[in-house]
Simulated scan of single mutants.
Amino acid sequence: MSRKLVSIQEAAQFIGVAAQTLRRWEREGRLVPDERTPGGRRRYDLSRLRPEQFRTADVARRTVAYARVSSHDQKDDLERQKQVLELYCARHGWTFEVIADLGTGMNYPKKGLKRLLDVIIDGQIGRLVITHKDRLLRFGAELVFALCEAKGVEVVILNQGEDTTFEEDLAKDVLKIITVFSARLYGSRSRKNQKLLDGVRQAVEVAQSC
């Protein structure tokens, strides 16, 4: 009987975890790749992978799903994210809670993100679920993923592709950065500052309409 060997990304998606989790499991001797290519890439036999085998390992530690949008006018999108996360976790039979934030991905001091980091550091959770990588942070998500790996937390990213709200969120983040730096340079109420911000807003609007 022929085997179907798949990459680490495909194997991780099939099981419902992140690729970095499979690397950790290999170090722990929990799931070793069936083969390696001449270039050293891992290959897994899909026929012997059973997702249910890996869903009881962190039973004592709950799953946390994290959702975020950048602004108040995206509240509907926040609710959609939460519903997708809740459905996914419930379908897999996980005990979970959803932590939600409303704030830019450039801003670290958010109440929900702080709580999420606290429970990861305290070892209270065994799994983190997000819809897209950028829902966590615009820059610095890899640091959170590294923390998860160190604490034995599986990271499940439902959509590895581009976030549907990426351009809109990025535009808001760029405006926030320009606002902060122009206020420092010219003063928050200066005419130079307002002129600069107006120009940036117009450029963003033109880019979004293309």
Results as ranks from 00 to 15, higher is better:
S2Y: 12
K4C: 03
V6R: 02
V6Q: 04
I8W: 05
Q9H: 15
E10K: 13
F14P: 09
G16V: 14
T21R: 13
L22W: 05
R23D: 03
E26D: 13
E26Y: 14
G29K: 12
R30K: 14
L31S: 03
V32N: 11
V32D: 09
D34T: 15
D34F: 08
T37C: 02
R42Q: 05
R42K: 11
R43S: 09
Y44N: 10
Y44T: 07
R48F: 11
R48M: 09
R50N: 09
E52Y: 00
F54S: 10
A60Y: 04
R61D: 03
R61L: 03
R62H: 08
A65Y: 02
A67M: 01
A67F: 09
R68N: 06
R68C: 07
S70K: 01
S71D: 04
S71T: 15
D73N: 11
K75A: 14
D76K: 10
D76W: 06
E79P: 08
R80E: 11
R80S: 06
V84M: 13
V84A: 08
L85C: 06
L87A: 11
L87E: 13
L87F: 07
A90K: 14
H92M: 09
G93R: 12
W94R: 01
L102V: 12
G105W: 07
M106S: 14
N107L: 08
Y108K: 06
G112C: 02
L116G: 02
L116H: 04
L117R: 07
D118W: 08
I120H: 01
I121Q: 14
D122Q: 05
D122L: 10
G123A: 14
Q124H: 12
I125E: 00
G126P: 02
R127T: 02
R127Q: 09
V129A: 05
I130A: 03
T131V: 15
K133L: 09
D134L: 03
R138V: 06
F139N: 06
E142M: 11
E142C: 07
E142P: 01
L143K: 02
V144F: 09
F145K: 08
A146E: 11
C148Y: 09
E149G: 05
V153K: 01
V155D: 01
I157Y: 04
I157W: 08
G161I: 01
E162H: 05
D163M: 10
D163V: 04
D169G: 13
D169V: 07
A171F: 09
K172T: 15
K172W: 07
K172I: 04
L175Q: 10
L175T: 05
I177Q: 11
V180A: 10
F181V: 13
S182Y: 14
L185P: 01
L185S: 06
Y186E: 00
Y186Q: 01
G187N: 11
K192H: 14
Q194T: 15
V200P: 12
Q208P: 03
S209Q: 12
S209C: 15
